[in-house]
Design a protein around this nucleic acid. Structure first.
Lengths: 207, 207
DNA sequence: GTCTATACACGGATAGAC
DNA sequence: GTCTATCCGTGTATAGAC
Protein backbone atom coordinates (compact mmCIF):
# COMPACT_ATOMS: atom_id res chain seq x y z
CA UNK A 1 0.00 0.00 0.00
CA UNK A 2 1.48 3.30 -1.10
CA UNK A 3 -0.19 6.19 0.63
CA UNK A 4 0.60 9.84 0.21
CA UNK A 5 2.26 9.72 3.62
CA UNK A 6 4.76 7.00 2.67
CA UNK A 7 5.60 8.79 -0.55
CA UNK A 8 6.35 11.92 1.38
CA UNK A 9 8.49 10.01 3.84
CA UNK A 10 10.49 8.40 1.04
CA UNK A 11 10.98 11.78 -0.56
CA UNK A 12 12.31 13.18 2.67
CA UNK A 13 14.66 10.27 3.11
CA UNK A 14 16.04 10.79 -0.37
CA UNK A 15 16.48 14.47 0.28
CA UNK A 16 18.40 13.69 3.43
CA UNK A 17 20.57 11.10 1.70
CA UNK A 18 21.36 13.75 -0.88
CA UNK A 19 22.25 16.33 1.76
CA UNK A 20 24.45 13.83 3.58
CA UNK A 21 26.29 13.06 0.34
CA UNK A 22 26.65 16.77 -0.43
CA UNK A 23 28.19 17.45 2.99
CA UNK A 24 30.81 14.74 2.50
CA UNK A 25 31.67 15.71 -1.07
CA UNK A 26 31.86 19.43 -0.30
CA UNK A 27 34.09 18.68 2.68
CA UNK A 28 36.43 16.51 0.59
CA UNK A 29 36.61 18.54 -2.63
CA UNK A 30 35.73 22.08 -1.66
CA UNK A 31 32.85 24.14 -3.03
CA UNK A 32 34.04 24.83 -6.55
CA UNK A 33 35.77 21.46 -6.78
CA UNK A 34 32.64 19.47 -5.97
CA UNK A 35 30.63 18.48 -9.03
CA UNK A 36 26.91 17.90 -8.83
CA UNK A 37 27.61 14.59 -10.56
CA UNK A 38 29.94 13.60 -7.67
CA UNK A 39 27.23 14.42 -5.15
CA UNK A 40 24.52 12.66 -7.13
CA UNK A 41 26.68 9.57 -7.49
CA UNK A 42 27.46 9.51 -3.76
CA UNK A 43 23.70 9.63 -3.15
CA UNK A 44 23.01 6.89 -5.71
CA UNK A 45 21.18 9.02 -8.20
CA UNK A 46 21.81 10.83 -11.46
CA UNK A 47 22.70 14.48 -11.75
CA UNK A 48 19.32 15.86 -12.82
CA UNK A 49 17.71 14.16 -9.85
CA UNK A 50 19.35 16.75 -7.63
CA UNK A 51 17.15 19.44 -9.15
CA UNK A 52 14.03 17.74 -7.94
CA UNK A 53 15.13 18.56 -4.38
CA UNK A 54 17.22 21.71 -4.73
CA UNK A 55 17.01 24.60 -7.13
CA UNK A 56 20.75 24.96 -7.63
CA UNK A 57 24.19 24.09 -6.34
CA UNK A 58 24.06 27.28 -4.25
CA UNK A 59 20.80 26.21 -2.60
CA UNK A 60 22.34 22.86 -1.80
CA UNK A 61 25.48 24.27 -0.22
CA UNK A 62 23.54 26.83 1.79
CA UNK A 63 21.42 24.09 3.31
CA UNK A 64 24.57 22.14 4.22
CA UNK A 65 26.03 25.24 5.88
CA UNK A 66 22.82 25.96 7.76
CA UNK A 67 22.54 22.45 9.13
CA UNK A 68 26.25 22.45 9.97
CA UNK A 69 26.24 25.40 12.39
CA UNK A 70 22.82 24.58 13.76
CA UNK A 71 23.92 21.09 14.78
CA UNK A 72 27.23 22.27 16.21
CA UNK A 73 25.51 24.97 18.25
CA UNK A 74 22.86 22.57 19.55
CA UNK A 75 25.34 19.83 20.41
CA UNK A 76 27.82 22.06 22.20
CA UNK A 77 25.09 23.96 24.06
CA UNK A 78 23.64 20.67 25.25
CA UNK A 79 27.01 19.45 26.53
CA UNK A 80 27.61 22.71 28.33
CA UNK A 81 24.16 22.54 29.90
CA UNK A 82 24.89 18.99 31.08
CA UNK A 83 27.78 20.16 33.25
CA UNK A 84 26.76 19.84 36.95
CA UNK A 85 25.52 23.01 38.62
CA UNK A 86 28.38 23.32 41.07
CA UNK A 87 31.07 23.21 38.39
CA UNK A 88 33.28 26.13 37.48
CA UNK A 89 33.06 28.32 34.38
CA UNK A 90 36.33 26.76 33.27
CA UNK A 91 34.68 23.33 33.43
CA UNK A 92 31.94 24.57 31.13
CA UNK A 93 34.59 25.87 28.74
CA UNK A 94 36.24 22.45 28.82
CA UNK A 95 32.88 20.84 28.02
CA UNK A 96 32.47 23.14 25.02
CA UNK A 97 35.95 22.28 23.74
CA UNK A 98 35.23 18.57 24.07
CA UNK A 99 31.83 18.93 22.44
CA UNK A 100 33.19 20.86 19.47
CA UNK A 101 35.92 18.28 18.86
CA UNK A 102 33.49 15.35 19.08
CA UNK A 103 31.07 17.07 16.71
CA UNK A 104 33.77 17.85 14.17
CA UNK A 105 35.53 14.49 14.24
CA UNK A 106 32.79 11.97 14.89
CA UNK A 107 29.30 13.06 14.06
CA UNK A 108 29.57 16.25 12.09
CA UNK A 109 29.97 15.83 8.34
CA UNK A 110 27.93 19.00 7.94
CA UNK A 111 30.01 20.89 10.49
CA UNK A 112 33.33 19.74 9.07
CA UNK A 113 32.14 20.62 5.56
CA UNK A 114 31.22 24.05 6.90
CA UNK A 115 34.68 24.52 8.39
CA UNK A 116 36.54 23.52 5.27
CA UNK A 117 34.55 25.33 2.59
CA UNK A 118 33.46 28.52 4.30
CA UNK A 119 36.59 30.41 3.28
CA UNK A 120 36.27 29.60 -0.41
CA UNK A 121 32.62 30.49 -0.90
CA UNK A 122 31.53 33.22 -3.28
CA UNK A 123 31.02 36.45 -1.35
CA UNK A 124 27.22 36.55 -1.51
CA UNK A 125 26.77 33.06 -0.09
CA UNK A 126 29.28 33.68 2.68
CA UNK A 127 27.63 36.95 3.57
CA UNK A 128 24.19 35.33 3.88
CA UNK A 129 25.65 32.68 6.16
CA UNK A 130 27.57 34.98 8.50
CA UNK A 131 24.65 35.72 10.82
CA UNK A 132 24.15 32.05 11.72
CA UNK A 133 27.86 31.66 12.33
CA UNK A 134 27.83 34.66 14.64
CA UNK A 135 25.19 33.05 16.83
CA UNK A 136 27.50 30.12 17.47
CA UNK A 137 30.36 32.50 18.17
CA UNK A 138 28.21 34.18 20.81
CA UNK A 139 27.97 30.92 22.72
CA UNK A 140 31.77 30.86 22.99
CA UNK A 141 31.93 34.53 23.79
CA UNK A 142 29.72 34.13 26.84
CA UNK A 143 31.58 31.07 28.07
CA UNK A 144 34.84 33.02 28.01
CA UNK A 145 33.30 36.11 29.57
CA UNK A 146 31.85 34.09 32.41
CA UNK A 147 35.21 32.51 33.16
CA UNK A 148 36.84 35.92 33.04
CA UNK A 149 34.20 37.31 35.42
CA UNK A 150 34.80 34.62 38.01
CA UNK A 151 38.54 35.25 37.87
CA UNK A 152 39.30 31.80 36.53
CA UNK A 153 40.89 33.25 33.39
CA UNK A 154 44.10 35.22 33.24
CA UNK A 155 43.28 38.88 32.70
CA UNK A 156 45.90 39.95 30.15
CA UNK A 157 44.35 38.49 27.01
CA UNK A 158 41.76 39.73 24.51
CA UNK A 159 38.90 37.26 24.59
CA UNK A 160 38.07 37.63 20.90
CA UNK A 161 41.58 36.61 19.93
CA UNK A 162 41.53 33.77 22.42
CA UNK A 163 38.20 32.56 21.03
CA UNK A 164 39.55 32.41 17.49
CA UNK A 165 42.77 30.69 18.57
CA UNK A 166 40.75 28.03 20.38
CA UNK A 167 38.36 27.45 17.48
CA UNK A 168 41.34 27.39 15.13
CA UNK A 169 43.10 24.63 17.04
CA UNK A 170 39.86 22.65 17.14
CA UNK A 171 38.70 23.28 13.57
CA UNK A 172 42.09 22.40 12.15
CA UNK A 173 41.70 18.85 13.47
CA UNK A 174 39.56 18.29 10.37
CA UNK A 175 42.69 18.69 8.28
CA UNK A 176 44.86 16.12 10.00
CA UNK A 177 42.83 13.71 12.10
CA UNK A 178 42.21 10.33 10.51
CA UNK A 179 39.64 8.00 12.06
CA UNK A 180 41.23 4.80 13.29
CA UNK A 181 44.25 6.59 14.67
CA UNK A 182 43.77 8.52 17.88
CA UNK A 183 40.21 8.69 19.20
CA UNK A 184 38.29 11.96 19.15
CA UNK A 185 38.15 11.81 22.93
CA UNK A 186 41.94 11.72 23.17
CA UNK A 187 42.22 14.68 20.82
CA UNK A 188 39.73 16.53 23.01
CA UNK A 189 41.77 15.74 26.13
CA UNK A 190 44.90 17.16 24.50
CA UNK A 191 43.04 20.27 23.42
CA UNK A 192 41.55 21.07 26.82
CA UNK A 193 44.91 20.43 28.51
CA UNK A 194 46.88 22.68 26.15
CA UNK A 195 44.31 25.45 26.00
CA UNK A 196 43.44 25.64 29.70
CA UNK A 197 46.65 24.64 31.47
CA UNK A 198 49.28 25.16 28.77
CA UNK A 199 52.13 22.96 27.61
CA UNK A 200 54.76 24.09 30.09
CA UNK A 201 55.47 21.67 32.93
CA UNK A 202 53.97 23.04 36.20
CA UNK A 203 57.19 23.66 38.06
CA UNK A 204 59.48 24.30 35.11
CA UNK A 205 61.82 27.31 34.94
CA UNK A 206 60.94 30.31 32.78
CA UNK A 207 57.18 30.08 33.19
CA UNK B 1 69.94 49.77 -24.61
CA UNK B 2 68.26 46.42 -24.40
CA UNK B 3 70.75 43.66 -23.76
CA UNK B 4 70.01 39.98 -23.38
CA UNK B 5 70.65 40.39 -19.66
CA UNK B 6 67.98 43.05 -19.19
CA UNK B 7 65.48 41.03 -21.17
CA UNK B 8 66.09 38.04 -18.93
CA UNK B 9 65.70 40.18 -15.84
CA UNK B 10 62.41 41.59 -17.09
CA UNK B 11 61.20 38.10 -17.82
CA UNK B 12 62.02 37.00 -14.31
CA UNK B 13 60.27 39.98 -12.84
CA UNK B 14 57.15 39.19 -14.83
CA UNK B 15 57.28 35.58 -13.74
CA UNK B 16 57.52 36.69 -10.14
CA UNK B 17 54.67 39.17 -10.51
CA UNK B 18 52.60 36.33 -11.91
CA UNK B 19 53.48 34.00 -9.03
CA UNK B 20 52.67 36.72 -6.50
CA UNK B 21 49.29 37.23 -8.12
CA UNK B 22 48.65 33.48 -8.22
CA UNK B 23 49.40 33.14 -4.50
CA UNK B 24 46.89 35.88 -3.63
CA UNK B 25 44.16 34.61 -5.94
CA UNK B 26 44.55 30.98 -4.88
CA UNK B 27 44.43 32.05 -1.25
CA UNK B 28 41.26 34.09 -1.77
CA UNK B 29 39.31 31.79 -4.10
CA UNK B 30 40.71 28.31 -3.52
CA UNK B 31 42.32 26.09 -6.13
CA UNK B 32 39.32 25.11 -8.23
CA UNK B 33 37.68 28.50 -7.71
CA UNK B 34 40.65 30.49 -9.02
CA UNK B 35 40.48 31.16 -12.76
CA UNK B 36 43.59 31.66 -14.80
CA UNK B 37 41.93 34.82 -16.07
CA UNK B 38 41.68 36.09 -12.47
CA UNK B 39 45.36 35.43 -11.92
CA UNK B 40 46.38 36.94 -15.24
CA UNK B 41 44.32 40.05 -14.55
CA UNK B 42 45.84 40.43 -11.08
CA UNK B 43 49.27 40.29 -12.74
CA UNK B 44 48.27 42.80 -15.44
CA UNK B 45 48.39 40.42 -18.36
CA UNK B 46 46.04 38.34 -20.48
CA UNK B 47 45.25 34.68 -19.89
CA UNK B 48 47.46 33.14 -22.60
CA UNK B 49 50.43 35.05 -21.24
CA UNK B 50 50.44 32.70 -18.28
CA UNK B 51 51.42 29.82 -20.56
CA UNK B 52 54.63 31.53 -21.54
CA UNK B 53 55.81 31.08 -17.94
CA UNK B 54 53.99 27.96 -16.75
CA UNK B 55 52.87 24.86 -18.58
CA UNK B 56 49.54 24.55 -16.79
CA UNK B 57 47.44 25.63 -13.83
CA UNK B 58 48.87 22.65 -11.93
CA UNK B 59 52.45 23.77 -12.56
CA UNK B 60 51.54 27.21 -11.31
CA UNK B 61 49.94 26.02 -8.09
CA UNK B 62 52.77 23.59 -7.37
CA UNK B 63 55.29 26.40 -7.59
CA UNK B 64 53.20 28.50 -5.21
CA UNK B 65 53.06 25.59 -2.75
CA UNK B 66 56.77 24.96 -3.02
CA UNK B 67 57.71 28.56 -2.37
CA UNK B 68 55.17 28.72 0.46
CA UNK B 69 56.65 25.98 2.64
CA UNK B 70 60.21 26.85 1.73
CA UNK B 71 59.79 30.43 2.90
CA UNK B 72 57.96 29.46 6.07
CA UNK B 73 60.62 26.90 6.96
CA UNK B 74 63.47 29.32 6.29
CA UNK B 75 61.87 32.18 8.19
CA UNK B 76 60.94 30.17 11.27
CA UNK B 77 64.30 28.36 11.36
CA UNK B 78 66.07 31.71 11.22
CA UNK B 79 64.02 33.11 14.08
CA UNK B 80 64.67 30.02 16.18
CA UNK B 81 68.39 30.23 15.44
CA UNK B 82 68.38 33.88 16.52
CA UNK B 83 67.31 32.98 20.06
CA UNK B 84 70.27 33.58 22.43
CA UNK B 85 72.35 30.53 23.36
CA UNK B 86 71.45 30.50 27.01
CA UNK B 87 67.70 30.45 26.37
CA UNK B 88 65.44 27.51 27.14
CA UNK B 89 63.89 25.06 24.69
CA UNK B 90 60.54 26.59 25.55
CA UNK B 91 61.88 29.97 24.45
CA UNK B 92 62.82 28.49 21.09
CA UNK B 93 59.31 27.06 20.79
CA UNK B 94 57.93 30.51 21.52
CA UNK B 95 60.15 31.97 18.81
CA UNK B 96 58.81 29.43 16.33
CA UNK B 97 55.21 30.29 17.20
CA UNK B 98 55.90 33.98 16.77
CA UNK B 99 57.73 33.40 13.52
CA UNK B 100 54.96 31.27 12.05
CA UNK B 101 52.31 33.87 12.91
CA UNK B 102 54.33 36.72 11.44
CA UNK B 103 55.00 34.75 8.27
CA UNK B 104 51.34 33.85 7.82
CA UNK B 105 49.86 37.24 8.63
CA UNK B 106 52.41 39.73 7.39
CA UNK B 107 54.78 38.48 4.78
CA UNK B 108 53.53 35.15 3.58
CA UNK B 109 51.00 35.29 0.74
CA UNK B 110 52.51 32.03 -0.49
CA UNK B 111 52.35 30.42 2.92
CA UNK B 112 48.79 31.52 3.60
CA UNK B 113 47.76 30.31 0.15
CA UNK B 114 49.38 27.00 0.98
CA UNK B 115 47.44 26.74 4.23
CA UNK B 116 44.10 27.52 2.68
CA UNK B 117 44.22 25.44 -0.49
CA UNK B 118 46.20 22.36 0.55
CA UNK B 119 43.12 20.47 1.68
CA UNK B 120 41.22 20.97 -1.57
CA UNK B 121 43.93 19.96 -4.00
CA UNK B 122 43.52 17.00 -6.35
CA UNK B 123 45.13 13.93 -4.79
CA UNK B 124 48.14 13.71 -7.10
CA UNK B 125 49.24 17.29 -6.50
CA UNK B 126 48.81 16.99 -2.76
CA UNK B 127 50.76 13.77 -2.71
CA UNK B 128 53.69 15.31 -4.57
CA UNK B 129 53.76 18.19 -2.11
CA UNK B 130 53.61 16.13 1.09
CA UNK B 131 57.35 15.52 1.34
CA UNK B 132 58.16 19.24 1.47
CA UNK B 133 55.49 19.78 4.07
CA UNK B 134 56.93 16.99 6.19
CA UNK B 135 60.30 18.70 6.29
CA UNK B 136 58.69 21.73 7.91
CA UNK B 137 56.84 19.47 10.31
CA UNK B 138 60.17 17.98 11.37
CA UNK B 139 61.36 21.38 12.51
CA UNK B 140 58.41 21.56 14.91
CA UNK B 141 58.84 17.96 15.96
CA UNK B 142 62.41 18.56 17.12
CA UNK B 143 61.52 21.77 18.94
CA UNK B 144 58.89 19.90 20.94
CA UNK B 145 61.12 16.90 21.59
CA UNK B 146 63.90 19.13 22.86
CA UNK B 147 61.54 20.83 25.29
CA UNK B 148 60.24 17.47 26.41
CA UNK B 149 63.80 16.20 26.93
CA UNK B 150 64.74 19.12 29.17
CA UNK B 151 61.63 18.59 31.27
CA UNK B 152 60.14 21.92 30.33
CA UNK B 153 57.06 20.26 28.81
CA UNK B 154 54.41 18.34 30.73
CA UNK B 155 54.86 14.64 30.10
CA UNK B 156 51.27 13.44 29.64
CA UNK B 157 50.69 14.61 26.07
CA UNK B 158 51.38 13.10 22.66
CA UNK B 159 53.70 15.50 20.85
CA UNK B 160 52.26 14.81 17.40
CA UNK B 161 48.80 15.84 18.55
CA UNK B 162 50.21 18.86 20.32
CA UNK B 163 52.09 19.88 17.18
CA UNK B 164 48.95 19.77 15.06
CA UNK B 165 46.89 21.65 17.66
CA UNK B 166 49.52 24.40 17.74
CA UNK B 167 49.77 24.68 13.98
CA UNK B 168 45.97 24.61 13.77
CA UNK B 169 45.58 27.58 16.12
CA UNK B 170 48.24 29.48 14.14
CA UNK B 171 47.12 28.51 10.64
CA UNK B 172 43.51 29.36 11.36
CA UNK B 173 44.49 33.00 11.91
CA UNK B 174 44.44 33.24 8.12
CA UNK B 175 40.68 32.74 8.27
CA UNK B 176 39.85 35.52 10.71
CA UNK B 177 42.66 38.05 11.04
CA UNK B 178 42.11 41.26 9.13
CA UNK B 179 45.07 43.62 8.70
CA UNK B 180 44.40 46.95 10.32
CA UNK B 181 42.77 45.38 13.36
CA UNK B 182 45.10 43.70 15.85
CA UNK B 183 48.78 43.56 14.88
CA UNK B 184 50.39 40.24 13.99
CA UNK B 185 52.70 40.70 16.97
CA UNK B 186 49.73 40.92 19.34
CA UNK B 187 48.21 37.77 17.84
CA UNK B 188 51.56 36.04 18.35
CA UNK B 189 51.69 37.14 21.99
CA UNK B 190 48.22 35.68 22.61
CA UNK B 191 49.21 32.43 20.89
CA UNK B 192 52.42 31.89 22.87
CA UNK B 193 50.62 32.73 26.11
CA UNK B 194 47.72 30.36 25.55
CA UNK B 195 49.80 27.52 24.17
CA UNK B 196 52.65 27.61 26.67
CA UNK B 197 51.03 28.84 29.89
CA UNK B 198 47.33 28.17 29.24
CA UNK B 199 44.28 30.33 29.77
CA UNK B 200 43.62 29.48 33.41
CA UNK B 201 44.62 32.14 35.91
CA UNK B 202 47.76 31.02 37.83
CA UNK B 203 46.25 30.63 41.27
CA UNK B 204 42.68 29.82 40.24
CA UNK B 205 40.77 26.84 41.69
CA UNK B 206 40.31 23.66 39.65
CA UNK B 207 43.61 23.82 37.78
C1' DG C 1 10.39 10.96 -8.80
C1' DT C 2 13.86 9.53 -11.76
C1' DC C 3 15.43 8.73 -16.28
C1' DT C 4 17.81 10.20 -21.22
C1' DA C 5 19.03 13.73 -24.06
C1' DT C 6 20.65 18.08 -24.62
C1' DA C 7 21.25 23.20 -24.32
C1' DC C 8 24.54 26.50 -22.98
C1' DA C 9 28.20 28.92 -20.63
C1' DC C 10 32.59 28.84 -18.95
C1' DG C 11 37.40 27.94 -18.32
C1' DG C 12 41.80 25.69 -19.59
C1' DA C 13 44.67 25.38 -23.25
C1' DT C 14 46.57 26.08 -28.16
C1' DA C 15 47.50 28.52 -32.74
C1' DG C 16 49.57 31.91 -34.89
C1' DA C 17 50.14 37.00 -35.84
C1' DC C 18 53.08 40.78 -34.49
C1' DG D 1 56.82 38.13 -24.96
C1' DT D 2 52.24 39.43 -25.47
C1' DC D 3 48.36 39.85 -28.30
C1' DT D 4 43.57 38.05 -30.72
C1' DA D 5 40.99 34.29 -32.05
C1' DT D 6 39.46 29.93 -31.16
C1' DC D 7 39.10 24.97 -29.92
C1' DC D 8 37.29 21.72 -26.83
C1' DG D 9 36.22 19.40 -22.60
C1' DT D 10 33.42 19.81 -18.68
C1' DG D 11 29.82 21.15 -15.55
C1' DT D 12 25.38 23.46 -14.41
C1' DA D 13 20.94 23.39 -15.59
C1' DT D 14 16.60 22.34 -18.42
C1' DA D 15 13.27 19.63 -21.42
C1' DG D 16 10.44 16.09 -21.68
C1' DA D 17 9.55 10.95 -21.67
C1' DC D 18 8.12 7.36 -18.53
Amino acid sequence: MVTSATRTRKSEQTRERLLDAAARVFRDKGYAGARLSDIAEAADMHTPGVYYYFGSKEDLVEEVLRVGVARAAAFVAERVAAVPDGASALDRLRAAIEGHVLMVLEIGDYTSANIRIFGQLPDDIRQRHLAQQRAYGDLWRSLLEEARATGELRADLDLSVVRMLILGALNWTVEWHRPGALSAGEVARHATAMICEGLAAPGAPGT
